[in-house]
């Protein structure tokens, strides 16, 4: 019993460690002071308005959204196809495919960024919106893939066979049987992929030209120590933008889990 309360004490300490920084950084968004200092001197909301009116922030936000939407859409297609293929495979080839799909997030970010930068230089491709999207889509695939493959493992193959026995061709079976069964897992994966893309900075610096995504804008501003009140607001907004899709995604997975039982 005594060791159990010791474990809970440790759990409490770790949770404080995990949450204190998030809470502190959110509080700073409402600070009146032009330079971040603790304790926070005064409460203000006008930084939210100032940030919203900053053209650079708006342009960066727009680019980040455009990249995240496109990268997520591509990851949904590639990840779902890969998962459906792997679900039909024998163990040896299966391992190779799932390993390669995992590589972009299992290998250090600097490596993925450096490899893409070298490749684009090698091919004489100018850095643009599409090079950013290419990088993001690559590391987002595994997120969708993982969600879909987990679902496919639980689904009996007999449903697909029944559809074929009833005379449906592969496209029909896909559209009317497999897709509805995978839909919520694709959705959950897409939400996580969106959050991952929206927040990524390490690979993006290597694949973006002169354009700024929102994380690149934040990184630059922190480094130069400029516009810190706006950084506080943007950081608060980015936390919301990434946490909300994740909560939704967890709900999707949870609902599907309950429905399966």
């Amino acid at each position: 019993m005594r060791s159990e309360s010791l474990i809970w004490l440790a759990v409490g300490a770790v949770l404080v460690f995990l949450f204190a920084p998030v809470v502190i950084v959110i509080l700073y968004a409402f600070s009146a002071a032009p330079i971040p200092a603790w304790p926070i001197a005064g409460f203000a909301l006008h930084w939210f308005r100032d940030t919203w009116n900053d053209d650079q922030v708006r342009a960066a936000l727009l680019l980040s959204l455009e990249v995240a939407v496109m990268a997520t859409a591509m990851a949904m297609v590639l990840g779902t196809l890969a998962a459906m293929a792997v679900a039909r495979m024998q163990s040896a080839t299966k391992e190779v495919v799932s390993f390669v799909v995992l590589l972009p997030i299992a290998l250090p970010g600097i490596l993925t960024g450096m490899a893409l930068a070298a490749y684009f230089a090698y091919l004489n491709v100018n850095l643009s919106y599409w090079t950013i999207v290419a990088g993001h889509a690559t590391f987002c695939v595994v997120i969708v893939y993982n969600n879909v493959i987990a679902r496919l493992r639980r689904l009996p193959r007999s449903l697909v066979e029944a559809s074929a026995d009833l005379g449906a061709d592969a496209f029909h079976t896909f559209r009317r049987v497999q897709l509805p069964m995978m839909a919520s897992s694709i959705g959950a994966g897409a939400l996580l992929a969106f959050a991952l893309s929206f927040d990524e900075v390490i690979v993006t610096t290597f694949t973006a030209g002169a354009q700024n995504t929102l994380p690149l804008w934040i990184f630059g501003a922190i480094r130069l120590g400029q516009q810190l009140p706006e950084v506080n607001v943007v950081v608060f907004a980015v936390i919301l933008f990434t946490v909300v899709p994740v909560m939704l995604s967890q709900k999707l997975i949870g609902d599907a889990g309950r429905a399966a039982r």
Partner: peptide, 11 residues
């Protein structure tokens, strides 16, 4: 999960 997915740069 929440801190895992809260923005990297924010943290």
């Amino acid at each position: 999960m929440v801190p895992l997915w809260s923005s990297y740069l924010a943290r």
